[in-house]
């Protein structure tokens, strides 16, 4: 039996539902109430009882859990196969996934196989009841523009959603959902790439995406040592460091702390941008931060246009004072 449904692609981190999945469930729940559809969640791999309960309380109606070891680690080939098989069976009106490693990888592939509509990196998905269609908004041109797309009625939509653009669902304690196990593994002929090794750059402490305070450095820091200085500032504030593309390309910092269109999307309470010019591709990843402070030696730097507080100075002369004063205030 199939009923109208929205299918969310769940991601699991350390056995629990990832923040993006909670956001997607929030978005799916709101849309489903307008569309008159149920919310289904597809997850693969190891899941704890708590995360299953989370899923239910975040508004999932049916959880499809793929338990075959073939889905134990992310494989674009295996997950594309899994998603297509499930979509054929339950015929969703909308597939929502994060603009993550998983979403970037499988969204176009399953859209091609299912003849679906496709929209990547959406910051909003609306339902237009008059036309019975979904309307997507996404950044384009490195974030310099926003584009709105309309999708044809009656055709499945596959949409990836940018982190932090959908409000997570409110939990409803004790809410129940149905659990369906998918026991079959992927068809071996579908697996064309073999994962041979994984390198994880572990972040010590708070994750960038979840940090309340971020001190980010750009090309203006001039060297890896510059990041040692701003790390001290971040530590004094109880925050973490981030970076633009330039320090990553220069190998001063690892790729895992890049912020922006091709890096991480963050929205901390406080974002301090040091030696950052404010290119569109960077701004698009941090502009929704609650408070933005910029330190830049160029008074005309674009970053000041989107900041609440600004200081025109060479960071080398002012950041040590900031560190000193903040440490003082903590005593």
């Amino acid at each position: 039996m199939t009923t109208k449904n929205i299918l969310v692609f769940g991601e699991v981190e350390k056995g629990r539902l990832a923040p993006i999945t909670k956001e997607l469930l929030g978005g799916a729940r709101r849309l489903s109430d307008q569309v008159g559809a149920g919310v289904n969640l597809l997850v693969a791999g190891a899941l704890s009882g708590e995360s299953l309960q989370d899923a239910a309380e975040f508004g999932t109606d049916i959880i499809y859990h793929a338990t075959d070891p073939g889905y134990g680690e992310f494989s674009s080939d295996a997950y594309s196969f899994l998603a297509v098989e499930l979509c054929k069976k339950i015929d969703p009106v909308l597939c929502l996934m994060g603009q993550t490693d998983l979403g970037r990888d499988i969204a176009p592939r399953i859209a091609a196989r299912l003849g679906a509509g496709l929209c990547m990196d959406c910051v909003e998905v609306r339902f237009d009841p008059a036309q019975n269609i979904f309307v997507q908004t996404r950044p384009a041109f490195g974030g310099k523009a926003l584009a709105e797309f309309s999708s044809p009625a009656g055709k499945l939509q596959v949409n990836t959603i940018r982190a932090k653009s959908m409000e997570p669902a409110a939990t409803q304690a004790g809410r129940k959902s149905e659990l369906m196990e998918i026991k079959e593994g992927p068809d071996p002929s579908a697996i064309k790439t073999k994962l041979v090794s994984v390198k994880v750059l572990e972040t010590d402490g708070i994750k960038l995406e979840e940090a309340k305070i971020i001190v980010a450095g750009g090309g203006g820091l001039g060297s890896a040592e510059g990041f040692t200085i701003i790390k001290e500032l971040a530590d004094a504030l109880g925050g973490v460091i981030g970076a633009t593309r330039v320090p990553v390309d220069e190998n001063w910092v690892p790729l895992s702390i890049e912020i922006g269109q091709t890096g991480k999307i963050v929205s901390p309470d406080l974002y301090i941008a040091i030696g950052i010019s404010g290119a569109a591709q960077h701004i698009t990843g941090m502009v929704s931060s609650k408070k933005i402070v910029a330190i830049n030696k160029d008074p005309d730097a674009n970053i000041f246009k989107i900041s609440d507080l600004g200081l025109v100075a060479d960071y080398k002369t002012v950041v040590p004072v900031l560190i000193e004063k903040i440490k003082e205030s903590a005593r």
Binding site: K144, A145, E148, F149, I306
Partner: peptide, 27 residues
């Protein structure tokens, strides 16, 4: 399949308070 219906430039501008002082340390 999906059609562009609107393209626009988002406005993100905030009012930036510039902090100054008699020297960089004071600022």
């Amino acid at each position: 399949v999906n059609r562009l219906v609107k393209l626009y430039v988002p406005v993100y501008e905030r009012k930036c308070e510039m902090v100054t002082g008699k020297d960089p340390a004071e600022a």
